[in-house]
Each structure stands twice: as C-alpha cells, then as structure tokens.
Lab assay of single mutants.
Amino acid sequence: AVSDRLIGRKSVVMEAISPQNSGLVKVDGETWRATSGTVLDVGEEVSVKAIEGVKLVVEKLE
C-alpha cells in the first residue's frame, strides 16, 4: 500500500503534537495528521512509526 512506504520515513512537525491532540507533519512534501505519545514542537524531526486509519503515529528522532 502507498501508506506502507511512509513507515520509517523522516518527517518534520508542522503543527505541534501532544498525547491529547493530534498535529500535522510533512512527509515527502505531503502533509499528514499525526499523533504521538509525547509532546512534539513545530520544526522537530520525527520518524513515522505506524499508521492508524488516516493518521500517522510518529516519535522524535534520537
């Protein structure tokens, strides 16, 4: 599936994300709604860990 190619990809937070609120990330020039178990600020680099419905699950790059 097209979405499977996103797992493991680097992306950049475009709208802040917290455990309570989804935000936005940009992956390969496309904007996606995303969630995370931690707070992520605009501009942080993250990695796509999973896809749940139409949202990406991301975490901060170490």
Results as ranks from 00 to 15, higher is better:
residue 25 V to C: 06
residue 29 G to M: 06
residue 32 W to T: 03
residue 18 S to Q: 04
residue 44 E to Y: 04
residue 2 V to K: 11
residue 62 E to P: 12
residue 37 G to W: 13
residue 21 N to K: 15
residue 54 V to L: 14
residue 60 K to V: 05
residue 41 D to F: 13
residue 3 S to E: 10
residue 27 V to A: 04
residue 55 K to C: 15
residue 4 D to G: 09
residue 12 V to Q: 06
residue 23 G to Q: 01
residue 59 E to H: 07
residue 19 P to Y: 04
residue 11 S to A: 15
residue 39 V to E: 10
residue 7 I to T: 06
residue 7 I to A: 04
residue 57 V to Y: 10
residue 21 N to V: 14
residue 60 K to G: 05
residue 61 L to N: 07
residue 3 S to L: 14
residue 30 E to F: 10
residue 28 D to Y: 05
residue 41 D to Y: 13
residue 6 L to F: 08
residue 32 W to E: 01
residue 10 K to Y: 12
residue 28 D to A: 07
residue 13 V to H: 01
residue 38 T to V: 11
residue 49 K to W: 07
residue 1 A to P: 11
residue 6 L to K: 05
residue 29 G to L: 05
residue 22 S to E: 15
residue 55 K to V: 15
residue 12 V to I: 14
residue 54 V to W: 14
residue 48 V to Q: 01
residue 8 G to S: 03
residue 4 D to Q: 13
residue 16 A to D: 03
residue 48 V to C: 04
residue 4 D to E: 14
residue 45 E to C: 15
residue 18 S to V: 06
residue 18 S to R: 07
residue 9 R to P: 05
residue 49 K to F: 07
residue 26 K to G: 06
residue 55 K to I: 15
residue 14 M to R: 03
residue 61 L to S: 08
residue 10 K to V: 14
residue 43 G to N: 05
residue 62 E to V: 13
residue 28 D to E: 08
residue 36 S to Y: 02
residue 12 V to F: 08
residue 14 M to T: 11
residue 4 D to C: 15
residue 58 V to G: 01
residue 43 G to D: 05
residue 46 V to G: 04
residue 51 I to N: 03
residue 60 K to S: 07
residue 50 A to G: 11
residue 4 D to V: 10
residue 54 V to I: 12
residue 31 T to Q: 07
residue 60 K to Q: 06
residue 46 V to Y: 00
residue 61 L to A: 09
residue 62 E to F: 12
residue 10 K to G: 07
residue 33 R to C: 14
residue 55 K to W: 15
residue 11 S to V: 15
residue 3 S to P: 14
residue 35 T to H: 05
residue 4 D to T: 12
residue 18 S to E: 04
residue 13 V to L: 03
residue 26 K to S: 13
residue 41 D to H: 13
residue 44 E to G: 02
residue 22 S to C: 15
residue 17 I to W: 02
residue 61 L to Q: 08
residue 47 S to A: 10
residue 16 A to H: 08
residue 50 A to F: 07
residue 44 E to F: 06
residue 47 S to E: 13
residue 40 L to A: 04
residue 39 V to S: 12
residue 17 I to A: 03
residue 42 V to H: 02
residue 23 G to S: 01
residue 18 S to C: 09
residue 26 K to H: 09
residue 16 A to T: 09
residue 49 K to C: 12
residue 1 A to C: 14
residue 50 A to D: 07
residue 3 S to C: 13
residue 22 S to L: 11
residue 36 S to W: 03
residue 28 D to Q: 06
residue 51 I to K: 05
residue 20 Q to E: 12
residue 44 E to Q: 09
residue 30 E to A: 09
residue 40 L to P: 00
residue 8 G to C: 09
residue 50 A to E: 06
residue 38 T to C: 12
residue 62 E to D: 12
residue 19 P to W: 04
residue 60 K to D: 02
residue 46 V to S: 02
residue 7 I to Y: 03
residue 36 S to E: 02
residue 23 G to T: 00
residue 55 K to S: 15
residue 35 T to F: 05
residue 32 W to D: 01
residue 59 E to C: 08
residue 51 I to H: 05
residue 17 I to N: 01
residue 16 A to G: 07
residue 33 R to A: 14
residue 27 V to E: 00
residue 57 V to P: 01
residue 49 K to A: 08
residue 60 K to M: 05
residue 26 K to C: 15
residue 30 E to P: 01
residue 22 S to V: 14
